[in-house]
C-alpha cells in the first residue's frame, strides 16, 4: 500500500479549486446551515430532531458531494487519466475524500454551534461524527463509481438519503412491522441513539455499542469503495 501525502495534497487542492468554481454543488453547504438556523432556539426540538439534521447533513452534503465529484471525473474521463499517473488507489481515494471531510467537518461545526448542542461526552460525539463522515464519503464514492454521469450520481444519492436518513423514522413502525427492527443497526439510527444516551450519561460502556456499529459500517463501506475503485482501473 503506497500513500504519498504530496499527491493527496495535490488532489485535494485541485478538488478545492473545482468545488469553489462549481456553484451547482458548492451551494449544498448552505442547506444544513439553513435548517440549523430554522431549528435554532426551538425549545420543543428533541435530540431526535437534531439527530435527523446531522444525518441529513451526512447524506445530502457528504455523500452527495462525494458522489458528484467522482461521477463528474468519470463522465469527463479525468478519473481514468488520473489513474494512469503514479497516484495510487489510496492517494486518489484519500485525496478525493479529503475535501468532503473538511467541508463536512466545517458545516457540522457550524450546525452544532447554531443548535447549541452540548454533548455530555465530547470525545464520543467527535468520534461518531468522524466515523459518519468517512462512511458517508465511502457511500458517496460507491454511488459515484456506479454512475456513468453526474446526473445519475445526483439521483443515486436519493436512495441513500431515504434509507439512511429515514431509518430512524422506520423504527417508529416497528410495533406494526417487526422486521423493521433491522433498521436499528443503521448508522443513522445509532447516531441518534448515541445522542440520546449522551443526554443522560457519558459512561464509555453506554456509548461503545453505537460507536462499534458505526465503526463496522465504516470498515465495510470503505473496503467496498476501495474494491470498486480498483475494479474501475480495469476495463474487463
Amino acid at each position: 500500500m503506497s500513500i504519498s501525502l504530496k499527491r493527496i495534497q495535490a488532489i485535494f487542492i485541485k478538488d478545492y479549486k473545482e468545488f469553489t468554481r462549481n456553484y451547482a454543488i458548492s451551494i449544498m453547504v448552505l442547506f444544513p446551515i439553513v435548517f440549523a438556523l430554522l431549528y435554532r432556539g426551538n425549545e420543543s426540538a428533541e435530540m431526535g430532531t437534531y439527530g435527523f439534521l446531522y444525518n441529513f447533513t451526512f447524506a445530502m452534503l457528504t455523500s452527495f458531494i462525494q458522489a458528484c465529484l467522482i461521477a463528474e471525473e468519470k463522465e469527463r474521463n479525468t478519473l481514468r487519466s488520473m489513474m494512469m499517473t503514479p497516484a495510487s488507489t489510496w492517494d486518489v481515494l484519500i485525496g478525493k475524500s479529503a475535501l468532503v471531510f473538511v467541508i463536512s467537518s466545517a458545516v457540522l461545526a457550524v450546525v452544532t454551534y447554531l443548535l447549541g448542542s452540548e454533548p455530555a461526552n465530547i470525545g464520543a460525539f467527535l468520534i461518531a461524527n468522524i466515523l459518519s463522515i468517512i462512511l458517508y464519503s465511502a457511500l458517496g464514492t460507491i454511488c459515484g463509481l456506479f454512475s456513468k454521469t453526474l446526473l445519475e450520481a445526483s439521483l443515486s444519492v436519493f436512495p441513500v438519503l431515504i434509507l439512511f436518513t429515514g431509518a430512524p423514522f422506520g423504527l417508529l413502525l416497528v410495533d406494526d412491522v417487526p422486521l423493521l427492527k433491522v433498521l436499528d443497526y443503521m448508522p443513522s439510527s445509532q447516531f441518534i441513539e448515541l445522542l440520546d444516551v449522551m443526554q443522560t450519561t457519558s459512561a464509555i460502556g453506554e456509548v461503545a455499542k453505537p460507536l462499534l456499529i458505526m465503526l463496522a459500517w465504516t470498515i465495510v463501506l470503505t473496503v467496498v469503495s476501495v474494491v470498486m475503485y480498483q475494479k474501475r482501473l480495469k476495463d474487463e
Partner: peptide, 21 residues
C-alpha cells in the same frame, strides 16, 4: 483523455507536476 474543465491549463499541469513529483 480528459482534463479539468474549470481549471486553467497551468492549474491542470500543476496537478500533474505534483502527481509526478
Amino acid at each position: 483523455s480528459g482534463l479539468y474543465e474549470r481549471l486553467t491549463i497551468e492549474e491542470n499541469l500543476e496537478l500533474y507536476r505534483q502527481l509526478y513529483d
